[in-house]
Amino acid sequence: RELQQFVMQEAQKATIQQSIHSLTDMCFKKCIGKISSGKLDKYEEPCMQNCVERFMDASHLVLKQLENMRTSS
């Protein structure tokens, strides 16, 4: 039973890591302009943060809309 819980937790972590990789991939394309230094500049840093937040807002929108479709049909 403890083993099972351990396995599930690890699987969940792997899913989270996966989401973080694909969010970084997508938001890097959207937010990062020229590569002049190795730091995120004052535009890029908030853009990356907003990108994560807005992506999650939008995913919730989708789930809500799907829910509405299902209950109304």
Partner: peptide
């Protein structure tokens, strides 16, 4: 859906989703 629609409807993510971004997304 999220991949394509975020790409198209939210080109520059800001501090909240605007009405028009929400409409586009839906």
């Amino acid at each position: 859906v999220n991949e394509h629609c975020f790409e198209r409807c939210v080109p520059k993510p800001s501090t909240s989703l605007s009405r028009s971004e929400e409409g586009c997304y839906s």
